[in-house]
Every structure is written in structure tokens, then in C-alpha cells.
Design a binder for these strands. Structure first.
Lengths: 192, 192
DNA sequence: TTCAAATATGGTCAAATGACCATGTTTTTA
DNA sequence: TAAAAACATGGTCATTTGACCATATTTGAA
């Protein structure tokens, strides 16, 4: 089960075999069932998590009951609740499994140790931060300027593989659009 | 003129006097007139910029002519076009001055040198990245879930000092709401 | 396999929003 | 100081969007 992660590491970094094993050795593996929570609102996010397989989502629920999705995390990506992880404060979001799957987790102290110890891992971590900033900015622009149809198109382009794995209402929750609006525009696209 | 920046540095870091001077010494100062561009779309962002005084904005213009504002940068904050700066690729946003002011700039190579040289500056830089991630996430949630009125309230709460310095249409461009909607809800608030 | 729950779609209606235009005011700049 | 530009507000109207409800279909769990 750690094999998939190790080959990910070899692909993404210049780590030698010893480094790969070292990082891998501190990982705790965990299985998730469908709808199982990785982290609940109010809990403290104590781990960095790598998704080996499956599909997770990070979302928050407004008082009126709407679910607003911050991100989807498919296999070979990482997830955590940054604010909570950084400050070890209660999380304001939930993370749960849309599909059953397996993840690897590192305790914050362990991971920080690895960052000090292994410069190539630090480089990877910085790349991840940089990508995260870019995609947040991109998403803000899209959210501000695009019509629902453009947002949907953009989503389809950006995450083509995710589309068939997600119920439509979650895509709506990600785009900030009602389910009704989404089905409407899909219907309109059918007619073309 | 560099004095303001130096006292900012002393407040925000553990830098000793030599460190403060060293960072300050590599800065290039520049004055900006009202509406003057710091960076145009298509140009490469070659500097990190600290705003000594004045008020800048980062925004992009959609084909239909609407201006969507990514961020405001008042005195004692930093600004740059991250994507462009990181990859030295053409910027997709403009940065210009809403108010006349003065900024300090560091060439990327110089700043990276300082980061290597001065660990406390590295810490400050990482703090800035962390804050930037948090505020982006917060903004995404607000944009997704709040009504225009809530967005406006949120803006007033978060940036109380900025409000009187900004034309309303820019606040609209930041919130992703039409100017009309903004004046409407303000009118409604007056009546309460 | 069967039943229950979740899901996608559609209809109708009311409310929110934006586009367009005009006006009075304030701010800039020549 | 005077003219020009930018700005905030309001009116009207068409369009978009969401809320609510019903239904058919798909999916998941017992």
C-alpha cells in the first residue's frame, strides 16, 4: 500500500531510495469508508494526509444548511485543513470521503522533522504551497468573473477525470451555484 | 523614506540592526502617481514590492470590460504578482496605484539572496505566505456562500480603514457584485 | 435481491441582480 | 479658477437565479 506513495515520491522529487524509505517509514496508513470523516469541524488537524486512492472533499456548512466545497482531493494528492494544521486550532471545515479509499498520514511533528532532515522534501512542500496559492487565485478570479456556464466549463476543463466521479450537487457546491442552475445549463448544452 | 520600512522590519522580525540595514540596502525606491501602473498585464513581475505609503490594487480585466480586483495593498503591506514572479512569466493582472505613494522594490535575485542569507527574513516570508493562503481560503468561502450584503458587511469588518479610501465601484469589483447592487444594499441599510 | 435513500431533472413562481440610461455631485486636472 | 472627468445614486426593465415541490431514475445497503 505504501508502494504507490513511494513511486509518487520518486516521480516528484530527486530523493534517493533511502530518503524515500525514510519518509514512507513515518507514515500511518488508514482506510476510509464512503462518507467517513477524516476530520470534523471543531477538531484539530494533526496530520498531513496523502491520498493513495479514493476521493476526498473539504467543505464547510453554512447555517442555512448549504455545503460549500473548498477542494476535492483525488488519489496522488495531499490534503489538510491548513488553518487548523498551522495553528493547531479547531478546524472550520470538514474533510470526508466521497469514495472509499486509503490514505497515508504523518503527524505534524514527524513531518516537520522530515522537512528539516530532507531538503528535497522541503522543495516538494514549497512547490505544493506555490501551486496551492496559484490555484486559489485562479479560483477567486473565476468565481468573481465567470458566469455559471463558464464556471462549469472551466471545471470540466480543469478536472476532466473528476466529473464522472462526483454527484452533480457537489459540483454545484464547489462552483457556488444552485443545483437547479447546473441542471439547467447542462440541459441547454444538450440542445446544441 | 526607508525609515518607515526599517521600523516595520524591526516590529515584524527579530532582525538586529545590521540585518535591517542589509535588507534595506538592496531596496530600490520608487514613487507612484495616481493611476500609475506598477505592473501591466503581459509584463513580467521582476520585483517584490513593499508599500511605504499609498494604496495599490491588483486586478484583471475580463473581455467584457469588467475589472475584478484580487487584492488591495495599503501601506505596510507587500505586493507582487505571484504567478508571474515565481516563473518569470507574463503577468495576467495589472497592479496600479489608487492613491499616489512610495514603494520599495527588490529584484528577485537580490531578495532570494537575502532569504538565504538572513533566516529571520525567511521566517517573515513564510508567515506572509501562510497568511496569504488563509485569506484566500477565507475569501473563497465568503464568495461562495455569502449574499452581497454579507459580503459587504464582511469587507467593512475586515478592512474598516480601507472603506473611505476606495471608490464604491472598486469595492464592487472586489466583491464580485455590480455597482448597482452595492448602492442598493447601502440604501437599504440607511433606512434601518 | 429488494427496499430505502440519494440523485437528477423539470415546472412554477417570486426575488435578486445586472444592463442601460439619466442626473446631480464630487474630484481632478489643466 | 474653470472645465472635464469620475463618481454615486436612482428609475426601469429583462434576465437570471434560487426556493419549493413533484417525479423518475439510479445507487447503495440490508
Amino acid at each position: 500500500m505504501k508502494a504507490a506513495f513511494e513511486s509518487y515520491l520518486r516521480q516528484q522529487t530527486q530523493l534517493d531510495e533511502a530518503g524515500v524509505r525514510r519518509v514512507s517509514s513515518l507514515a500511518i496508513s488508514r482506510k476510509l469508508r464512503r462518507n467517513e470523516f477524516l476530520l470534523r469541524e471543531g477538531e484539530v488537524c494533526r496530520h498531513k494526509t496523502f491520498i493513495v486512492n479514493g476521493l476526498l472533499r473539504t467543505y464547510s456548512v453554512t447555517p442555512d444548511g448549504n455545503e460549500h466545497i473548498l477542494s476535492f482531493s483525488p488519489e496522488n494528492t495531499w490534503t489538510l485543513e491548513v488553518e487548523s494544521y498551522d495553528r493547531q486550532a479547531p478546524s472550520r471545515s470538514h474533510i470526508d470521503a466521497i469514495e472509499p479509499g486509503e490514505v497515508l498520514q504523518w503527524l505534524k511533528a514527524d513531518f516537520n522533522g522530515l522537512l528539516e532532515e530532507i531538503p528535497q522534501l522541503k522543495i516538494l512542500a514549497e512547490q505544493m504551497v506555490s501551486r496551492s496559492i496559484h490555484s486559489s487565485r485562479q479560483r477567486i478570479i473565476t468565481t468573481l468573473s465567470a458566469t455559471p456556464e463558464q464556471k462549469y466549463e472551466d471545471f470540466v476543463q480543469t478536472y476532466p477525470g473528476l466529473l464522472p466521479r462526483l454527484p452533480l450537487r457537489m459540483i454545484a457546491g464547489y462552483l457556488g451555484v444552485s443545483l437547479k442552475t447546473l441542471t439547467r445549463l447542462r440541459h441547454a448544452q444538450m440542445l446544441r
